[in-house]
Design a protein around this nucleic acid. Structure first.
Lengths: 149, 149
DNA sequence: TAATTCGTTCAGAATGAATTGAACGACGTC
DNA sequence: GACGTCGTTCAATTCATTCTGAACGAATTA
């Protein structure tokens, strides 16, 4: 017995909400993304609010966040007053690009510290450098993952 | 004119606190890790609380977290009543191992949804599968980064 | 022009996580 | 045995973030 598709859908949307949250993205934004990802086609602003049962203010904020990250795009339809949203063309590489940037930023921050450690403390410098290398390595790997996709 | 080493050290510790926070680890835990990373040698429980200016309860919680993740190790010294903490042997691979696990878990969660999508919706299935693949790819990359270190 | 409906904004409420600090049992010292 | 210090625990507090909902200007319709 296979599960009702509506159930599968809403469970998936909840999962995306939680995963987003784990990554520092608000849960509602994650659910919006999940819904657009599942449905594929354009969804009206009002439908997002109604189906996800969140305020329109929340939808406004979330969609802007997702738009800024190039994960979704906003559409308008002639004769329609509402805005519509749809998954962007390559949302996944864009997600990875951002993760990669975050890693690179962490690396740069640490590297700045390394540069300030005086040379008479080679052991300290080495350890902190190792830490910077961790993020350098992560950044590079994510970059690669992005290209692999 | 080079900066005072104490300044460099405390700035570094603050950075590690913030970076930790970005990754979902409590700030205090990040600072503890930063301090042990910078200092290299064993630091007494009481010194962590005093230097970082946080409660001993916080140190207790943070050190347990870091210990569980194999990022630091607890030491005892004969004749000393306090516990001491030191950076673990390979903290960085251990960090990556955990990140990798998190990616794998996200992938598995999504994959479970994919399996429940009925075949009469190939487009939906394909999109959700792509999403799962994102995490699969990330997981693999991080695994590779870990080996590269 | 009045009445809807649209999306945005922002002050405040709600939520959730981190931190404190007091209580506690264990251990060592006097 | 009394006292002091150790690390842990947990209830209460603090803090940051997210979400709501009312107010608003713009656009549309009647």
């Amino acid at each position: 017995m296979t599960k009702q598709m509506g159930i599968v859908r809403s469970e998936f949307i909840e999962k995306t909400g939680l995963i987003a949250q784990n990554q520092g993205i608000p849960r509602v934004a994650g659910r919006v993304l999940g819904m657009l990802l599942f449905d594929g086609d354009a969804v009206a602003f009002g439908d997002l609010a109604r189906e996800l049962q969140v305020s329109r203010g929340s939808i406004s904020t979330s969609t802007r966040l997702l738009e800024d990250r190039a994960l979704i795009k906003r559409l308008t339809k002639p004769g329609e007053r509402q805005d519509f949203f749809q998954l962007a063309e390559n949302p996944f590489p864009n997600m990875l690009a951002r993760v990669q940037q975050e890693m690179a930023r962490a690396q740069a921050d640490i590297q700045a510290s390394v540069a300030e450690i005086c040379d008479s403390r080679p052991d300290v410098k080495a350890r902190v450098q190792d830490y910077a290398n961790l993020y350098a390595s992560l950044s590079a790997s994510v970059q690669k993952a992005k290209e692999t996709l």
